[in-house]
């Protein structure tokens, strides 16, 4: 099928984009890479009156360094992420997860910001942003606001983005191997280009044989990405060993409410969360 007819706007600046969205009325969709939106429109699950295409908004693309943060433009494509030297140095967790997103053609078009704004609980990047304590910069008619990752994801396919607003950049705290950080994105799916059944994004900081900090994001363990808080707490100050990591990982599914669907039952997902957390932690901690 082809999408239902729509009007099309192709701004070249954030200001023009916000204006186009404001002028568009009630039924506007923002097109980032289009790798989720165009399929949904083709199936007529969405039939907006106006599509505002951000692909020519150059200021939304690219990665820059600002103090202890990296600032990633929302329209930075997955392929850009994979070839960016700053992200390779300071955001390996994002790079690892992005390598598993869909396939090479989709990664050429799909964008980091688009994947976050779409907020699919089976998508790989929301859990990474959450684990890294990313900040989301949102532009709207009244100016810009910054929202922490913990507040950005509200529900299934739902974020704090209001009508008329645009996700413009994502700020990631630098996580470098030189500072003792190890990372791993551990994903379980069944076939090529499939969505995660469950996945775990882990970052572990070591100092002198002990773990000083652990950050763990869970993909597809509920309607939004989640932190494995109990496991994170259990890891602080413990010796780096397979025993401590395994014991902490046993708590990874605490407080989660994953769905039952064709791919997996909820209890199986909780089992996977523990197993994958253990693997991700072991790899991140260099075990």
């Amino acid at each position: 099928m082809i999408p239902a007819a729509f009007a099309y706007s192709r701004p070249t600046t954030v200001e023009e984009a916000l204006q186009a969205i404001a002028d568009g009325g009630d039924d506007v969709k923002v097109l980032a890479g289009g790798q989720s939106l165009i399929p949904v429109m083709r199936l007529r699950l969405a039939a907006p009156e106006l599509v505002v295409d951000l692909t020519r908004v150059e200021e939304l693309r690219g990665v820059r360094e600002e103090g202890d943060q990296l600032v990633v433009g929302a329209m930075t494509t997955h392929a850009d992420v994979l070839s960016d030297p700053l992200l390779a140095q300071y955001a390996q967790l994002l790079v690892q997860a992005t390598e598993t997103v869909a396939d090479r053609q989709v990664r050429r078009r799909g964008t980091f910001g688009g994947a976050l704004a779409h907020a699919d609980p089976a998508g790989d990047l929301p859990a990474v942003a959450l684990a890294l304590d990313a900040e989301f910069v949102i532009a709207g008619p009244a100016g810009r606001r910054t929202v922490p990752a913990g507040e950005f994801f509200v529900d299934y396919l739902t974020t704090v983005l209001e009508e008329g607003e645009l996700l413009v950049e994502i700020r990631l705290p630098k996580i470098a191997a030189a500072d003792g950080w190890g990372v791993r994105y551990e994903k379980f799916n069944r076939v090529a280009q499939a969505w995660s059944i469950v996945a775990v994004a882990a970052a572990v900081r070591r100092e002198g044989g002990r773990i000083t900090e652990a950050r763990i994001g869970l993909t597809n363990m509920g309607p939004t990405p989640l932190r494995a808080s109990a496991t994170e707490a259990a890891l602080v100050g413990v010796d780096v060993s397979l025993e401590t990591v395994t014991a902490a990982a046993a708590q990874a599914a605490e407080g989660t409410s994953p769905s039952n669907d064709l791919n997996a039952q909820a209890d199986y997902r909780q089992h996977l969360a523990q197993v994958l957390t253990k693997r991700a932690l072991a790899a991140a901690a260099g075990l």
Binding site: Y8, R10, G34, Q35, I38, P39, R42, D53, T55, R104, Q105, V106, R108, R109
Partner: peptide, 11 residues
Amino acid sequence: AVKSCTVLAVQ
């Protein structure tokens, strides 16, 4: 390489 079914001609 892109999937031309997931790109609009106007793009």
